Amino acid sequence: GATAVSEWTEYKTADGKTYYYNNRTLESTWEKPQELK
């Protein structure tokens, strides 16, 4: 079936920290989303 993983994109900030952005909800988070675990 369809999965929600594709909504999240992993980015890195200029200082090398990783964060996650959800293209559907426009939410961003420092925590790894449940969908990616």
Rank of each mutant, 00 (worst) to 15 (best):
G1H: 14
G1R: 01
G1K: 04
G1Y: 11
G1V: 14
A2G: 12
A2F: 12
A2N: 13
A2E: 12
A2T: 13
A2W: 12
A2S: 14
A2I: 13
T3V: 11
T3Y: 06
T3P: 12
T3W: 10
T3F: 10
T3C: 14
T3D: 14
T3N: 13
A4W: 14
A4C: 06
A4Q: 13
A4M: 11
A4Y: 07
A4S: 14
A4K: 05
A4L: 12
V5L: 13
V5T: 13
V5C: 15
V5E: 12
S6I: 09
S6F: 10
S6Y: 09
S6T: 10
S6H: 10
S6M: 09
S6D: 12
S6A: 11
S6V: 10
S6C: 08
S6N: 11
S6Q: 11
S6E: 11
E7I: 06
E7N: 05
E7P: 05
W8G: 00
W8F: 02
W8T: 00
W8E: 00
W8S: 00
W8L: 01
W8V: 01
W8R: 00
T9V: 15
T9A: 10
T9K: 10
T9W: 09
T9R: 10
T9M: 12
T9N: 08
E10G: 02
E10M: 09
E10I: 12
E10R: 03
E10S: 05
E10W: 05
Y11C: 07
K12D: 03
K12N: 06
K12V: 14
K12Q: 11
K12R: 13
K12P: 02
K12A: 06
K12S: 07
K12T: 12
T13W: 03
T13N: 08
T13V: 03
T13G: 08
T13A: 08
A14L: 11
A14P: 13
A14R: 08
A14Q: 10
A14M: 09
A14W: 09
A14V: 11
D15N: 08
D15E: 09
D15L: 04
D15K: 04
D15M: 05
G16M: 02
G16K: 01
G16E: 02
G16Q: 03
K17S: 06
K17A: 07
K17Y: 08
K17F: 08
K17G: 05
K17N: 06
K17H: 09
K17T: 08
K17W: 04
T18Y: 09
T18E: 04
T18D: 04
T18V: 10
T18R: 04
T18L: 09
T18F: 08
Y20D: 01
Y20L: 01
Y20N: 00
Y20T: 00
Y20W: 15
Y20F: 06
Y21G: 02
Y21T: 09
Y21N: 02
Y21H: 09
N22L: 00
N22Y: 01
N22D: 03
N22P: 01
N22W: 00
N23F: 08
N23I: 08
N23Y: 07
N23H: 15
N23V: 07
N23A: 07
N23Q: 08
R24P: 03
R24Y: 15
R24V: 15
T25P: 02
T25Q: 01
T25E: 03
T25F: 02
T25M: 00
T25A: 01
T25D: 03
T25Y: 03
L26S: 14
L26W: 09
E27F: 04
E27M: 07
E27A: 05
E27R: 04
E27H: 04
S28T: 15
S28D: 04
S28K: 14
S28W: 15
S28Q: 14
S28A: 12
T29N: 04
T29Y: 07
T29K: 07
T29P: 01
T29M: 06
T29V: 14
T29I: 08
T29S: 10
E31Q: 08
E31P: 02
E31I: 11
E31N: 07
E31W: 05
K32N: 04
K32T: 06
K32E: 06
K32P: 07
P33E: 02
P33Q: 02
P33H: 02
P33S: 02
P33R: 01
P33V: 02
Q34A: 15
Q34W: 12
Q34S: 13
Q34H: 11
Q34R: 08
E35H: 06
E35Y: 06
E35M: 04
E35S: 10
E35G: 10
E35L: 05
E35C: 05
E35N: 08
L36R: 02
L36I: 08
L36E: 05
L36D: 08
K37Y: 14
K37L: 14
K37I: 15
K37Q: 14
K37D: 14
